[in-house]
Design a binder for these strands. Structure first.
Lengths: 184, 184
DNA sequence: ATAACCATGTAAATGGTTACATGATTAG
DNA sequence: CTAATCATGTAACCATTTACATGGTTAT
């Protein structure tokens, strides 16, 4: 599943410019499970235009470069449908922050705490972002996926909050850890 | 954070072959937040060998190609430490399955149910895999990250289980949805 | 027989990020 | 004045995936 497919998906919901599609990945319902930068969106749009999967209307604007509003075509809808019929790849998560926390013993105390705090703040932002979204107009599909993101972010935040003190303490006083632990 | 860094991380815990490193990404504690194939692991190991970050001992075996057991060097530990001091990139999740469920209305009823079932089964496998792991020898760092994976997978599974019926029903009978909903 | 596991590696192709290039408007 | 937002696009670089290449052992 590449940038082309996901752009086609966004356009199947409503017309959009490349700029607006990016915002969907940043602040919209896609933010939980997909991301793409301008460097992949614009070329994808251009390619699909040449393939007849989308059309484009240039809307001149005062003082700004013309907006290019893309719309999906019937051929585009067919291709999107086909793309949704291939076996999905497994989910792929890559988390540099978790790598760092995993090797937390190699960091200084304050560095480790900073990484932890930033990570927690980051997840809170993600959750806020999902919660800010107006879901009242959404189909059930979208509500379900949105709810999945909320559930996962909440679980992550809860784990971070519940274990923050223990995680940071354990590095500072390893002897105490052994003495305090019941064992078994 | 690239394959080199994460391989170095694995080797900082214990010596390993490329094959064994891959297994760590598949079934080990890294499975939640990192993945890499042979196509990136072997070249990374070769490059690090030439840079003096790791050493390699060839262990001949009966009937099989010689095992190459890699060990991290002091220079390797320094580089790893440095790599852990750059600002971490944001987490990146890519989920084809959620894209499919998001556009579930474009799939046939049985296809949609199949994607859903496979996704739930996949998450259960992931959770089982983490739970099978022996964590008793692990440091607190590792336990914390392991616990994060468990918490997130459990939340995802709960959401999938709790909403499966409603998700599938909503597509089959959209009129009923409207009639049943209290609104507001 | 067949599949899965052990074990390594390369080359081509794909895909994505980052830096570059441009430039007006609006809010602080 | 500065930063952010709106708005598009290319080129170079980087990283990863996939297919290819090899081949014995063990379990079903």
């Amino acid at each position: 599943m590449d940038t082309k497919t996901i752009c086609l998906g966004v356009l199947s919901l409503h017309d959009a410019t490349g700029y607006e599609i990016k915002k969907q990945f940043e602040e919209g319902p896609f933010s939980y499970f997909y991301d793409a930068g301008y460097g992949s969106i614009y070329p994808a749009l251009g390619k699909m235009l040449s393939e007849g999967l989308v059309t484009c209307v240039e809307v001149p604007q005062d003082g700004r470069p013309a907006k290019k509003v893309y719309s999906i075509t019937d051929a585009g809808r067919d291709v999107l449908r086909d793309m949704l019929h291939v076996r999905p790849a497994r989910d792929k998560l890559r988390s540099d922050s978790l790598v760092m926390l995993f090797f937390g013993h190699l960091l200084e105390t304050n560095q480790r705490a900073a990484v932890f705090d930033d990570y927690l703040a980051y997840y809170r932002d993600c959750l806020d972002c999902l919660n800010r979204m107006d879901n009242s107009e959404s189909e059930d599909d979208r509500c379900f996926v949105h709810g999945m993101g909320v559930a996962v972010y909440e679980a992550a935040i809860r784990h971070l909050e519940d274990n923050q003190q223990a995680f940071l303490d354990s590095h500072n006083a390893p002897e105490i850890k052994r003495a305090a632990g019941g064992g078994g």
